[in-house]
């Protein structure tokens, strides 16, 4: 299995925020979810992959080619869906499409018209008059019409209704049917798209926390719920993050086997959800600051 995106030691400093030494591979033919709280660096990372922001350090490879040198050829194979509208607002859908189409070598007008119909995109309407969902649908139609091998989506579902989210799931699984196309999307809301994600990349405070297969990820962790008397100094050390209340505690342990051995008889041991892993990791990192 080859990597469609390969990042090596990527760093970038901003005034009040920095991405630090991010190295990871995104698998070809699969859906990868990029998760993390707001401000974790998801959009910055995507912008770097899209060549909108230059890294201070590090190397980016796309489709096995050096991205900083082969950007134009690589972007011909990328479909990009931004978290904000990037199109000219006063143009109509039709005119915007006319502007975009000639730049892509594999633009297929028939496919575009198919999606225009499917998404009920009004060709004569101005971009600024489209709803958020429609804008996303338009950028999806564009991305799918130039035969993109890699779909990169930044927060595609934020602010969208559940019906469209479902439609999107359908579209995305349709897109990867041929085993060659890959999808990367970012989200701060783990409950919707993550069920079709094959891999999860978790970023927190500009650092990579993990890049794991979704299927076995939750099996590595253990969620422990028990009485507060169980927590002493050494025990606390076992946890990634703990939430204590007046009636007990909940905590996440990174090593399932070890955790189960210790807490099996004294506390409730469960398999955490992705959201719980995210929550306790962020909580834990805040506590250490």
């Amino acid at each position: 299995m080859s990597d469609v995106i390969k990042l090596q030691g990527l760093s970038k400093s901003y005034d009040r925020f920095a991405l630090r030494d991010i190295s990871l591979g995104i698998k070809e033919g699969y859906i990868t979810g990029l998760i993390g709280p707001n401000g974790a660096g998801k959009t910055s990372l995507i912008k770097m992959i899209m060549g909108m922001v230059y890294p201070d350090q590090g190397d980016i490879q796309l489709f096995g080619k050096n991205h900083l040198q082969q950007q134009a050829a690589n972007k011909d194979r990328i479909g990009y869906v931004s978290d904000e509208n990037i199109y000219y607002e006063h143009l109509t859908v039709k005119d915007m499409k006319r502007v975009i189409a000639p730049f892509y070598t594999r633009w297929d007008e028939k496919t575009y018209l198919k999606y225009q119909e499917k998404f009920k995109l009004p060709p004569g309407k101005k971009i600024k008059d489209l709803s958020k969902g429609m804008k996303i649908k338009f950028s999806l139609a564009v991305a799918l019409s130039h035969g993109a091998d890699l779909l990169i989506m930044d927060e595609p579902t934020s602010g969208l209704d559940p019906i469209f989210r479902r439609e999107l799931l359908e579209l995305l699984s349709e897109h990867i049917q041929d085993e060659k196309k890959s999808i990367v999307f970012s989200t701060h809301n783990t409950s919707d798209l993550d069920r079709i994600a094959d891999y999860i990349v978790f970023i927190n405070e500009g650092r990579l926390v993990f890049n794991e297969m979704r299927e076995t990820l939750t099996e590595k962790y253990l969620l422990v719920k028990g009485g507060r008397e169980l927590l002493d100094r050494d025990v606390r050390h076992m946890f990634i993050g703990i939430r204590e209340t007046g009636v007990g505690f909940e905590g996440l342990i990174g090593n399932r086997v070890e955790g189960e051995r210790y807490f099996k008889d004294t506390a409730i041991c469960e398999m955490p959800t992705l959201e719980e892993i995210m929550y306790f990791t962020v909580k834990g990192s805040e506590a250490h600051v």
């Binding site: 699969y30 859906i31 479902r166 799931l169 359908e170 699984s173 349709e174 990867i176 049917q177 085993e179 069920r195 079709i196 994600a197 094959d198 891999y199 297969m213 979704r214 299927e215």
Partner: peptide, 17 residues
């Protein structure tokens, strides 16, 4: 595998497993 993943709206790796 991919068709089933699509129909059930789950990840490819889950059906593969």
């Amino acid at each position: 595998i991919r068709q089933l993943a699509k129909d059930l709206q789950i990840s490819v790796i889950t059906t593969k497993r």
